[in-house]
């Protein structure tokens, strides 16, 4: 690891200020992403500002909203009874993420800032536009079993690594930030950016902007939700394909639907057309299959990952069946 300086900030403002004045400074909370990437030489911050002391880790329900402090650990949120009851797909996504130790370490804010697991991105020997614009994308024409079937560009076909982000995308969560320019509230749908020709820019966050909390607006489709994750081994693995899905079903008819896919795109992949196709339809296998076909309509494999198109469609059906029968 390149030598760096370290500071413990005492409040969010101090943390933001410390990072703001140094273009190469980073925040650190759990450390599970940034230290891993620093060891691989992918990230080389000059200063790490430890934000663990700047705020609490509470998960608070107020009326129809749950606010999750950005410093809450993945395991805190996964274990929270309100989350489990009102947003099961969030709890499910977390419980299927990483390992118990990493869930105890990683903060919610940090989880959302996780970077891709593309092995070319992590191997500084391989050309990667995300690491350095213009170098090329090694995954295109390379080993791309785990890569994107949606949203990729000629410069990047990576997939986003976070399970939580997929659930939050489906939940229409809001990410609240605290930055040099003040506070902001950003919808998850606006938070993650497609690679286009700037795969190095991954989120709407500005330098030194710190995630302070994530809020969920509770609704029946979130309460009746699930997270299906497909992978090679039973635990401790990133998704090949995942689906966060929720439905409000009244009298056998779907009133509202939420669907987002993971492991298929550089960002959590919400599929509004498929959701719209479900509304007003009976909660039946035929409806689910049709929605899955719509969800995958624009998908395109790049060789090693061609199987993901059919797999993701089946995973959508599976997720909808789970909550269809639960309702």
């Amino acid at each position: 690891m390149k030598p760096f300086r370290y500071a413990r900030a005492r409040d969010p403002q101090e943390a933001v200020q410390m990072v703001a004045v140094d273009a190469a400074a980073s925040f650190v909370a759990g450390g599970t992403t940034v230290l891993d990437l620093m060891k691989d030489d992918v990230e080389r911050p000059s200063l790490l500002v430890d934000i663990n002391g700047v705020a609490g880790r509470a998960i608070v329900r107020a009326g129809d909203e749950i606010a999750i402090a950005a410093l809450a650990r993945m395991s805190d949120v996964a274990d929270d009874p309100e989350i489990a009851k009102h947003a099961p797909m969030v709890a499910n996504a977390l419980l299927q993420s990483a390992s118990p130790q990493l869930r105890n370490m990683a903060s919610i804010g940090g989880n959302l800032m996780q970077r891709t697991r593309c092995s070319y991105f992590r191997d500084i020997v391989a050309p990667c536009n995300k690491r350095r614009r213009g170098d090329g994308c090694s995954a295109i024409g390379g080993e791309n079993r785990r890569h994107a079937i949606f949203g990729g560009s000629e410069s990047c076909i990576c997939v986003h690594a976070s399970d939580l982000a997929v659930a939050l995308a489906a939940a229409d969560a809001t990410i609240h930030t605290n930055g040099p320019g003040g506070t902001r509230a950003i919808q998850v749908s606006d938070f993650y950016l497609l690679p286009r020709d700037t795969p190095n820019v991954e989120t709407a966050l500005h330098h030194a902007e710190l995630i302070s909390s994530v809020t969920l607006s509770l609704d029946p489709a979130l309460a009746n939700s699930t997270y299906v994750k497909v992978r090679d081994r039973a635990q401790y693995e990133f998704a090949l394909v995942s689906v966060a899905a929720g439905m409000e079903i009244v009298g056998g008819t779907i009133r509202a639907a939420r669907i987002a896919l993971g492991g298929v795109a550089p960002i959590p992949w919400r599929v509004p057309e498929a959701e719209a196709a479900l509304v007003g339809r009976p909660a039946t296998a035929a409806s689910y299959r049709e929605a899955a076909e719509i969800a995958l309509a624009g998908a395109r494999g790049c060789g090693g990952n061609d199987f993901k198109v059919a797999l993701a469609a089946n995973a959508v059906v599976r997720a909808l069946e789970q909550i269809g029968s639960a309702a």
Binding site: R233, Q235, E237
Partner: peptide
């Protein structure tokens, strides 16, 4: 993470 060996589950 990329070369998978069986975990307890």
């Amino acid at each position: 993470a990329d070369y998978l060996v069986p975990v307890h589950a």
